[in-house]
Amino acid sequence: MDTVVETQGLYKYFYNKKGHTVIKACDDISLSIPKGKTLGLVGESGCGKTTVGRILLRLIEPDSGTVFFNGHNLTEMNEKHIRPLRKNFQMIFQDSSSSFNPRMRAYDALKESVQLYSDLRAKELRDEIYHLMSRVNLHKEMLSHFLGSLSGGELKRLDIARVLSIHPAFIIADEPLSLLDMSIQSQIVNLLLEVQKEENTSLLFISHDLRIVRMLSHTVAVMYRGKIVELAPKSVITENPLHPYTKHLWNPKISDFYVQFFESGCVYKNSCRVLHRKGFPLICSEKQPELLEYEKGHYAACHFAQE
């Protein structure tokens, strides 16, 4: 199977003014997304999901590590060489309300993206835009509105329409369903599935909504504090989760523990129920567990994954 996107050992730390590490947004992230497949990236808010997506698009520079897109090493290319490739990877932004110039009209925004990579003119262009609008279930009247006056959900759908207008080979969907109500959520999910089927698009689906991640993804990666703690095919990870954090996500109960940032040991040790049950073993607070393959295609980073 062809791999569309592959990352190796991505690191991205954010520092404060004194130079202390404040957030480890990416801590040794290695992912690969095959053609036509979906990788779901799950985790609590602030764990670095969006940062991973933005590094894949080279919107921010990683501290170290490489990103391959169809064999091109994006981390070594400069912006001038990446720009022709940008047609192939697009992002549905988390905050759609600020991802459009509020002084543009909806029609101009779509026109800009459609005309960027095609030579459609006049009537064909208008038909294409109407088609896009109907795909994301927006009314034609919206096209004459200023983007600043549209609601969050409408902008989200317009953002999706903008991405679809380019026909990318790889879409990063950064919480595409937040701000949308139930019926539109299902429409968008169906739309994404349809696009994936038609155009064989690869998807990185970033979300904290497990229900939808389970519906869309072929593989699921669970992130915690900038680290991937478990990576497995969807059916495996839903039926037999190995890492305690994944178990907690699947079956959430209120955690009593205040989550802190640690220099050493397992990232999840403060909220871990296994740790409690085991009587606080030293290995958890001293050694960072590696992402090991326990079954075929099922990776987990926990010292007690098999128990």
Binding site: L57, L59, R83, P84, R86, K87, Q90, M91, F93, D95, S98, S99, F100, N101, P102, E112, S113, L116, Y117, R162, I166
Partner: peptide, 14 residues
């Protein structure tokens, strides 16, 4: 610094 400029860049605008 606004996100829409980033979105334009990501879209592939020069």
């Amino acid at each position: 610094k606004q996100q829409f400029i980033e979105a334009c860049k990501e879209l592939g605008l020069s």
